[in-house]
Amino acid sequence: MFRFVAFAGKGGVGKTTLSAAYALERSRRGDKVLVVSLDPAHNLGDVFERKLSEEPTPIETNLYAIEVDYDAMLRRSLKKLSEKIKDMYGYLRVFNLDKYIDVLQHSPGIEEHAVLETMLDVIRRNEAEWGFNIVVFDTPPTGLTLRIMALPSLSLLWVEKLMELRLAILARRRAVERVLGTKPRVSLGGREVSLATEPRGDPVYAELLKIREEYSFVDRLLKDPQRFSVVMVVNPEALPVLEASRAAGFLSKLGIRIGAVIVNKVLKLPQEDASRRLYEQKRALELLHKFFDRYPIVEVPYLDEEPRGLDRLVKLSRFLEEITEGCTLWSS
């Protein structure tokens, strides 16, 4: 059974670097690890100093990486949706579909759907072909990541209500059929069509069942503390800490496990160089410990070199020992 972890946080806090360092350390401890960058502003290839693609690229033994092409991901997701509509195009003729599909990629909700689909695609391909035992997701900035995580629960709420309403519609159609002795019919696109009266024969109900099954699978996966957790990454400043605490509260309400919190770029200066900056950092760290006292907290100092390339990533990963040992991020 493989496990996966998502590194989440504000833009620029160091999610990519830390997810790369964590993945590198786990791979050197014997796990077969895949890092997947879902951030539209990719840096994973820069951190590993390799050109990455949408297929697993070897970084070293047991460590591979993927950078998802964001535009291609959105187009693929829309193509899948539009293919179903196009099958019925001659029947409905409601929209000018080609132009409409182009506009859809800018619609609210499409981006989080596309990213969630990509995560699922990686999970399925890992189970079917690749066989990594840890998959690390470097996620987009917090706002989008929270919407992605909430999408399965929200979709299931809607689907349940729509199924209730659909069953009420089918019950009324059955009542009409019992009185009249024939199924209700309607003229659509010049053809007489018999309307379904039972859930079994209703394409709308069948589609709702399929949607419910798909989102239930994802929902169970994200809420399984033995398989999935989120690592919150913050900087030692009040605003990122406050945002992270709200994000953690939101994820906990959804039932998603927070595996750890990493405070990145902690200034370590001698006391005599104490400055206003250090004072504010100290306050931010106190706030952090107050909000996140239930979770393992890892402090990573501000390094004197930019952590790019494998050698420097190894130095960074030494600060992550608390979470790279064993399976502390997930529940046992």
Binding site: V159, L162, V204
Partner: peptide, 14 residues
Amino acid sequence: PPLPISLRLLPHLG
């Protein structure tokens, strides 16, 4: 609902 749900049901809602 989230747009993908609406789009998947659309073909069946003549």
